[in-house]
Simulated assay, not measured.
Amino acid sequence: MAKEAPLAIVVCGDLSKAISGAGSDYWVQDASAATENLLLAAQGLELGAVWTGVYPIKERVKEVQKILHLPEHIIPLNVIPIGYPAENPLPKDKWKPENVHYERWTKGK
């Protein structure tokens, strides 16, 4: 997708700015929230955009780092190709009531 798109944004985490200790992986949540905001903004502009995962697959991380000449402490989370969609399919209906649990986990639901 990125090859065909006129634009791609790479969302990265800067590990030199990450907090230390048990919260060091919070950069993933922060970058994920930023990515979701970016995807919503693209949709609002009637652009097509898709989250293509990079992290935590080491081979993908290394390849993106190589292509963009990123230092070791800059970790790409994803690549977001953006452009005008060739088609506008209806949203997929992924609602499954059996995936919702109330007050406690219920087996077989």
Score class of each variant (00 low, 15 high):
Ala86Phe: 02
Glu63Ala: 15
Gly21Ile: 01
His73Ser: 11
Gly23Pro: 03
Ile57Tyr: 12
Arg104His: 15
Ala42His: 00
Leu7Met: 08
Leu7Glu: 02
Val64Tyr: 07
Leu38Ala: 06
Gln65Asn: 11
Leu39Pro: 04
Met1Gly: 11
Glu63Tyr: 10
Val11Gln: 04
Glu72Arg: 13
Pro91Gly: 13
Pro91Tyr: 08
Pro85Lys: 12
Cys12Lys: 07
Gly44His: 11
Val28Ala: 04
Trp95Gly: 08
Met1Lys: 04
Pro56Ala: 09
Val10Gln: 00
Glu59Arg: 08
Cys12His: 05
Ala33Val: 14
Val11Ile: 15
Ala31Asn: 06
Lys96Ser: 11
Ala2Arg: 10
Leu70Phe: 15
Leu77Glu: 07
Ser24Val: 00
Lys96Glu: 14
Ala33Ile: 15
Tyr26His: 03
Asp14Phe: 07
Gly83Pro: 10
Leu47Ser: 10
Leu68Phe: 04
Ser20Arg: 15
Ala18Val: 01
Gly13Trp: 01
Pro91Arg: 12
Lys94Ile: 14
Val54Phe: 02
Val100Arg: 09
Leu7Asp: 01
Ile9Thr: 09
Cys12Trp: 05
Pro56Lys: 09
Leu38Ser: 03
Val100Trp: 12
Arg104Gly: 04
Ala34Trp: 06
Pro89Tyr: 10
Gln43Lys: 14
Ile67His: 10
Ala42Asn: 01
Gly21Lys: 00
Ser24Asn: 11
Pro76Cys: 07
Lys94Ser: 13
Leu47Ile: 08
Ala5Gly: 11
Trp51Phe: 05
Tyr84Val: 14
Tyr26Arg: 04
Ser16Leu: 11
Ala18Ile: 00
Leu47Met: 14
Asp30Gly: 11
Thr52Trp: 05
Ala22Leu: 14
Trp27Glu: 00
Ala33Ser: 12
Ala8Cys: 12
Lys58Phe: 03
Asn78Arg: 01
Tyr26Met: 02
Ala41Ile: 02
Ala34Ile: 06
Ala2Leu: 12
Leu15Asp: 00
Lys3Cys: 03
Val28Trp: 01
His73Gly: 03
